[in-house]
Write a protein that binds this DNA or RNA. Structure first.
Lengths: 196, 196, 196, 196
DNA sequence: CCCTAAACGAGACGGTACGTCCGGTCTTAAT
DNA sequence: ATTAAGACCGGACGTACCGTCTCGTTTAGGG
């Protein structure tokens, strides 16, 4: 994804096209399943940008990657509204597992989570990213609660933890695929937990 | 943890004392919560060993770290045998969360999981480490199944995924602590799930 | 010779101050008669420079050392012009032997000639260095020839070879000093050869 | 030159076969014009010998190489005895230049002279090697002096320096070949110089 | 005749240097 | 003032070699 067309300078104002090119390249590189190195130099070169342009707007490499990741988050996972908790949960987890099972997504998530462990900026961005995803799922659960579908003492946060926990655990260790069947099974189990 | 005493050579056979010194130093460095760098150079220096002695026996830094980690695994988590699934599960998860909540353990697990994402050798070792931990928990569940405590169609592997998924998810994102209360709640939820 | 004062960056152009610092340190280290190691690391450290800055501009250690040596060549040996071949030759060889007999010069020449045997880049630079020194002496001889002081068939190159041959032979083997008396004797002998 | 046949142990006495194998391999490796590394490991492996067997009898790598070189010295350069200085000198220098011009010899001399600059043991051996070669040539000159062929004040040592100086200078810098014509020319010049 | 001491092949070891890679900072010249 | 370009410092990486050390084996020669 090398910048082919000439991108004009914008003088003393921030160049939005450059910013977008950087994030696009970051997304592209993160998704590569070969061993293309994801370095600031390769990003800058591929985006047709100076390294300083990156560091002017982001504090570290991890911050760039996490913002790139966050920008792509949720595009593949619409929030379903079927009317029942189990169906919502199943639809959501199927979509989530489907997206999360794509090789490009796996690669990107693995790399960024690793980066978040060593780069404090990336860690902070990752926390926000995670919090955002959690809010969506928790919203889905709260809707069901408001409909009276959940038991009184149901720990919604713990249910969210289990859903995303399984997802990340499998992505990072690779010990099992994110199969559709497992999405369904997990949805059923978590719906059961919610009902009490 | 510098080697103070003179360590004798062992001729043409591997020097077990050197191997142990390397792993000890690795464990020590992995557990540091300050930003002490975990490098081959620092490991070698602290262990009083030449770098080549490390590379002679391990293919990469990650492999050393994972072996060091694996060597310490399970020391803090005995397998309980109370007679009932829920009590076993609760005891196991309490111990696991307790150990996994210790700053030194968190630091080590975060670093090694990150390393496993970039170093194929570390990844392979991590897979084995993960598989070993899973076997323990799965054995506990199978025992309950053999006692007839679980429903016919209960997916034991998924339950294992949920337990360790929550653990790793919290360790890596840091969005919530590994509290004792959550261990108890999770044990209850999973026991219920197993019973069907 | 550590860089004490802050050296400013020069942006996208080569930093001449850094280049000079590297060569200065190299000259200094080459001249040491103790066993201070002449390493890229020590050069970089003493010059306050990253190793990559050296490898960006020179292909190998030997290339740096040879350039450093060449930069100092000829400073101590002015080309005399007395009007007669023998006097010119004597003055030149006295100065050459004097400079070549200095411990710092001996050390530098020994090290660089050794380096030139194993490093092809250094070898190439050494060839140029040698060629440059030869040109000076040969120029002196040609001037005498133009004055009609030499025999018709005199092989000037072979005379140059003998002069520098004795110099290097003694420097490298250390079997005899570069005494003033020998400079005079050699000048007389070579002048005799030239006259035929 | 790998040791193919089984070499028997000799109990508690030095194994002469091993010693010879080491020197043979050293000579072979020194003569290689490709970039085969001349290391203790390669020598030991090729000679079918443990490294310790080398270090038991020689103090350093350079010492081995120099002894190997010395063992081959003089094999190609018989001392002529034609009856006249110029003819003796010409015959000697022709043979010397011929031998010294062989690629294997050049390679060996270059490597060992370089080694002699960094390894004190090699340096000492080189001094002896050089002294030995000098004695031969000086003997030739003294014979002529005893016949009354040289001038009273002729500096025989300087003549020896000039002869070997040219040889080594060309070998080490490679700026010119050791041609037969130059051997003849040099012999003539030095004979003239001796006659005064 | 056995038993011990030395030499041997093998190769692990501590240490030092190499040349490469990359993160984040800095400066120039162009826009 | 912002940008593309890219040099710079620092520091980790994994490799190569030196010379030392220990093991287990083999043989010579003294008790």
């Amino acid at each position: 994804m090398t910048a082919e067309t000439r991108r004009p300078h914008t003088g003393r104002r921030r160049n939005e096209a450059a910013r977008q090119a950087i994030l696009d390249v970051a997304v592209d590189l993160l998704g590569r399943t070969d061993d293309t190195p994801v370095t600031i130099d390769t990003i800058a070169a591929a985006a047709g940008v100076g390294k300083q342009t990156i560091y002017r707007w982001w504090p570290s490499k991890g911050a760039v990657l996490l913002e790139a990741l966050a920008g792509r988050a949720g595009v593949d996972v619409p929030v379903p509204d079927t009317g029942t908790l189990e169906d919502d949960l199943e639809a959501f987890l199927r979509a989530t597992f489907l997206a999360g099972g794509h090789p490009r997504t796996v690669s990107a998530l693995r790399y960024t989570m690793a980066e978040a462990q060593r780069d404090p900026h990336a860690r902070e961005h990752m926390r926000e990213f995670i919090a955002g995803r959690r809010r969506v799922l928790r919203g889905l659960l709260e809707r069901a609660r408001d409909r009276g579908e959940t038991a009184a003492g149901a720990d919604l946060d713990l249910i969210v933890d289990q859903a995303y926990g399984v997802l990340w655990y499998r992505i990072l260790t690779g010990h099992a695929d994110l199969s559709e069947a497992d999405a369904v099974a997990l949805a059923g189990a978590l719906a059961g937990q919610a009902r009490g």
